[in-house]
């Protein structure tokens, strides 16, 4: 398989995952704000912070209103990570790898791009937003399902999985960080109730609530949610699972010994002892370190397979 094709497949997966998670995040956030007591000062701007896009946002907007934030995240063509730009990136990457991606995937991506372009305004308006986001989410699920079902599970597939899992691990760690930050900012009076609401939406934004409840047999609380999303061995969006899947995919590719060796420290970091009873600054620092390691995994993969001379 060509290195250049491997790289494009990898990016297709990352961007596709980004489209799905952006759609989901906006959807969940709306509900979260409805549920929290009005005294809690959580703003839409947090979504910009979670995605590390403060600088890009502030260059273009002065008011951090709901409309501006949603517009920026969904339809702003100058925001490199907006939903519309991510989707274009998926389309461009698939367009240039049409020889290895199933034919129907190309058509589904064209359809999804068309839908998004034509209905963007629905996504920005609060009234029609849910419906719009649901359609986008379904489109992404359809594409993922098609690939899983019809793509041979060969090298191209492994690169797709690698991209998907690096992006997922990154997202999950960001959501955990965002949840934790929000809780640390709570006023004394709101703590108990709001904690549950915030952790609940972190779970929901990863589609994790149902399986969290089954696996932990515990009500929603930080001491259980954090380890579940960091370490659960079966949940496909837990950081631990993503890293396991990432290494599993790498192992199937030619010349992977060096890559696996370099990825080991992430595994080790995940199994380090953490005191989950104390959800404070030290955990925040831990998540920060973990994120830096996750970012480095991209370069490990890229050095090994994408940059041939």
């Amino acid at each position: 398989m060509l290195s250049s094709v491997a790289e494009r497949i990898y990016w297709s997966a990352r961007y596709l995952e980004r489209v799905a998670s952006t759609a989901r995040l906006i959807d969940i956030y709306q509900v979260l704000l409805f549920d929290l007591p009005k005294t809690v000062k959580l703003s839409w701007y947090n979504l910009v912070i979670i995605n590390d896009l403060e600088e890009d946002f502030n260059e273009r907007y002065t008011n951090r209103t709901e409309r501006n934030v949603v517009k920026f995240l969904l339809g702003d063509t100058t925001n490199p990570s907006s939903l519309i730009n991510s989707l274009n990136a998926v389309r461009e990457n698939v367009r240039t790898t049409r020889d290895v991606v199933p034919e129907e995937a190309w058509e589904l991506i064209c359809e999804l791009s068309m839908y998004t372009q034509d209905n963007l305004e629905h996504g920005i308006n609060r009234k029609s937003r849910r419906d719009f986001l649901e359609q986008v989410t379904k489109g992404c699920l359809q594409i993922n399902g098609l690939l899983f079902d019809s793509m041979p599970h060969d090298a191209a597939w492994e690169f797709f999985r690698i991209g998907q899992n690096i992006e997922r691990a990154d997202m999950t760690s960001r959501y955990l960080e965002a949840g934790l930050t929000a809780i640390l900012e709570l006023e004394e009076d709101d703590v108990v109730n709001s904690q549950q609401i915030i952790w609940g939406s972190v779970l929901r934004s990863l589609n994790a609530t149902q399986y969290y409840l089954r696996a932990t047999r515990s009500p929603v609380k930080g001491q259980e949610v954090v380890p579940y999303l960091l370490r659960d061995q079966n949940f496909p969006k837990s950081v631990g699972y993503c890293i396991w899947a990432l290494m599993h995919s790498c192992a199937k590719l030619p010349g992977s010994e060096g890559v696996l060796r370099k990825l080991k420290p992430i595994e080790k970091k995940l199994s380090a002892e953490i005191d989950y009873e104390d959800l404070g600054e030290s955990l925040l620092e831990y998540l920060n370190q973990l994120q830096i390691m996750l970012t480095s995994s991209h370069f490990i993969v890229s050095d090994a397979w994408f940059l041939q001379r």
């Binding site: 398989m1 060509l2 290195s3 250049s4 491997a6 240039t96 590719l253 010349g255 041939q308 001379r309």
Partner: peptide, 21 residues
Amino acid sequence: ELVEGSDLVVEDDDCVYMKTI
């Protein structure tokens, strides 16, 4: 294979190769 010029290289043996993973 769909290739661009940068995916290919001619080695000293005068054969054409593509850069794969």
